[in-house]
Design a protein around this nucleic acid. Structure first.
Lengths: 107, 107
DNA sequence: TCGTAATATTGCAATATTACGATAAATTGT
DNA sequence: ACAATTTATCGTAATATTGCAATATTACGA
């Protein structure tokens, strides 16, 4: 098979998985790190900075964007990206609410 | 191609990606949620609870375990799993240290 | 030791992801 | 309008992931 059976899980669980998928690739983590350090940045810089092709970077950016983790706007021909902090914090809150329930452990 | 070029990224970035990969599949999120709610649990319960085959659950458990997010021990023939909270918090700290640097945003 | 229960591993088919060259689309300056 | 620059999209090859049946392994009790 090979198809993830999303339909057997709750919405919150699927949402955590979807956002986590963004962080599940080092290129995307590197992109987010770079953007967060710049307060806004340009895609072409990323190509130079990260060391992947322009097409690949653009794809990763759209994955990050689809998950709601970016804000962006065009400034002339260049596109300015920044991190959607609210969304990022939403992800952290979700993670916390799921896994920080038990303080005691059995092992 | 299709190969993730891990070698062009730093260790911290790759580590974030590796741990995030655990959370990037709803079955694994559901497994972690279930375990965290039980303070220890049994794999066979998971098969019944999650709705995937025993082989699949077992595979997911080993992915979670390889990332260091589980502690487990055998209790007779059954295996008792619990969450490695230290490791989970390590992940959260890593995420924070990378992306909560800029409070101001450009967009 | 033998049978049973629980978990792990293997092998495979189906699908998803990653990466990049080529090309298209958008925008600015001339 | 045209060329130059920047980003997006398409096509496709390579690799990774997902899921399960079948089988193996491990541990216990009779």
């Amino acid at each position: 098979m090979g198809v993830t059976k999303r339909f057997i899980f709750t919405d919150s669980i699927n949402e955590i998985a979807n956002i986590a998928k963004v962080f599940a690739h080092p290129a995307r983590v590197a992109i987010l790190k770079h953007i967060s350090e710049q307060e806004g940045c340009i895609c072409n810089d990323l190509v130079h900075e990260i060391g992947l092709s322009q097409a690949t970077i653009s794809q990763h950016l759209s994955v990050i964007g689809d998950a709601g983790l970016l804000k962006g706007r065009f400034e002339g021909k260049k596109k300015c990206y920044c991190i959607n902090l609210e969304r990022f914090e939403e992800f952290q809150t979700l993670l916390n609410s799921f896994f920080i329930k038990t303080t005691a452990n059995c092992c």
